[in-house]
């Protein structure tokens, strides 16, 4: 059986869902397994692994990441279908099942011969963009002869209006809901992305792209007082990570007399645990300690403008 049209493989970080991943014996629990899969199965990181796994426990022990990504895939397939493009959309993850290598094997079994790759990370660094591409390549190697061939990778979209507009919409929704005037002098906007070691930020356009996304979002919101901050830095690291950190910006805003901060994680595409805990819980706690009200706007998820923009880029790639 052979599938005549190319398929789309969405590659994302992944999050723990119920069901043992069967990588470690005895099973230490899904969240623990997930975090140790990221940080490495290493006694030196035991404390950090336990610390991060505990964040998952605060939200029931699992993450909605994969469910959000599947919804994005369904919305994208529907949008492409509405344009007459019957493109099967597959989702594979780096750190949880279904792993990219498993999905590539399934695609091969389903007769897929060609695929486009969509990296579900808005900003490019070696540990997101390159690593995701790498696991696609590994999946193809492991699948062997007859594995789908990569006919293209969807271009990154950090400065695309469909992405920045979707973020601006989410921030506007949250502000309206909470009765906040974003451009009021006592209000500030905090736009966050995942911290990376500085050494990685020097070899990739990651920070530059984040700054550009933030500037475009702020422009679409009418020019509020905004700053970029980095979140979820590994707490046990001895090396410098991208700055400033969320806590530092909140403190600076409090010192500057701001009474309300609206936060949005522009480096993330869904409300995963890092967004919910590191920004939603710890960011709010930090703001409260400074006597500042903190409101978090949800991530882009399946915002129609975002999905349309992805569909535009997929369609453009297929047309070549």
């Amino acid at each position: 059986m052979s599938c005549p049209t190319p398929a789309l493989l969405m590659v994302a970080f992944g999050g723990p869902t119920p069901g043992c991943c069967e990588r470690f014996t005895p099973c230490p629990g899904e969240a623990h397994c997930f975090v140790s899969g990221i940080l490495g199965h290493n006694p030196a990181r035991r404390q950090r692994i336990a610390e991060v796994a505990a964040h998952y426990q605060e939200f029931g022990g699992y993450s909605e990441f994969n469910a959000y990504t599947r919804k994005q895939a369904e919305a994208l397939a529907a949008e492409l279908g509405s344009r007459g493009l019957d493109v099967p959309v597959w989702c594979g993850y780096h750190h949880w099942r279904p792993y990219v290598r498993e999905v590539v094997a399934d695609m091969k079994a389903a007769g897929v011969r060609e695929m486009l790759v969509l990296i579900m990370a808005p900003h490019q660094s070696s540990v997101s963009w390159d690593l995701y591409l790498r696991i696609v390549g590994e999946g193809i190697e492991q699948a062997g002869a007859g594995a789908p061939r990569v006919i293209g990778v969807v271009e990154p979209w950090w400065n695309e209006a469909g992405f920045t507009g979707a973020i601006a919409d989410r921030i506007t929704e949250a502000s309206c809901r909470e009765g906040i005037d974003l451009c009021a002098p006592d209000t500030a906007l905090l736009l966050t992305a995942h911290a990376v070691p500085e050494s990685l930020s020097r070899t990739a356009p990651y920070c530059k792209q984040i700054e550009e996304t933030a500037a475009l979002v702020a422009t679409q919101l009418g020019g509020p007082d905004y700053r970029v901050a980095y979140q979820s830095q590994s707490g046990d690291s001895a090396v410098p990570w991208t700055q400033p950190m969320v806590e530092d910006v909140i403190a600076a805003y409090a010192d500057a007399g701001k009474s309300t901060i609206v936060g949005n994680a522009i480096g993330f595409l869904c409300d995963n645990i890092e967004v919910l805990y590191d920004l939603g819980v710890e960011g709010r706690r930090c703001a409260a300690e400074h006597g500042v009200r903190f409101v978090r706007a949800e991530s882009v998820h399946s915002h129609p403008a975002f999905i349309r923009m992805l569909a535009d880029r997929v369609a453009a790639k297929l047309a070549r």
Partner: peptide, 10 residues
């Protein structure tokens, strides 16, 4: 973390 870096642990 220099000894327990994720590149090694993974």
């Amino acid at each position: 973390p220099g000894v327990g870096h994720s590149l090694l642990g993974r």
